[in-house]
């Protein structure tokens, strides 16, 4: 269990998130992908904090704040999705494309 392992793990998480964001049609799933990306960053912060950083608490604080932010993000995004759903009765990324050109 060294730094490289965690970095690879986070890279995997980040890529998984990206793939979800780019390929899933349902916007709620896309949101889950974004959460994965944020968690990848959190893993990175924790790993670096554990193996590299002189100050052992910085990373933990950052991760706590990221969790909080992610929750806020979900709240706002879901609220907007609700508006979208009420207006169109669908949350499919490929079908909402009236704005273009």
């Amino acid at each position: 269990m060294n730094l490289t392992f965690f970095l690879l793990l986070s890279l995997l998480l980040f890529s998984a998130g990206l793939i979800a964001v780019m390929s899933r049609r349902n916007l709620v799933t896309v949101l889950v992908g974004i959460e994965l990306m944020l968690n990848a960053a959190s893993v990175n912060f924790m790993a670096f904090n554990f193996f590299v950083a002189p100050d052992p608490v910085v990373g933990q604080i950052i991760v706590l704040l990221i969790i909080g932010l992610a929750a806020a993000e979900v709240a706002v995004f879901l609220a907007i999705l609700m508006v979208l759903y009420r207006a169109r009765h669908e949350v499919d990324a490929e079908d909402i494309r009236e704005l273009r050109g």
């Binding site: 990206l18 964001v21 990324a93 490929e94």
Partner: peptide
């Protein structure tokens, strides 16, 4: 060029990435 803006948000994200 404006047609690149095709309205499909995931294609935007893919291009950015």
């Amino acid at each position: 060029i404006a047609r690149l803006q095709n309205g499909w948000v995931q294609s935007y994200i893919a291009s950015v990435i």
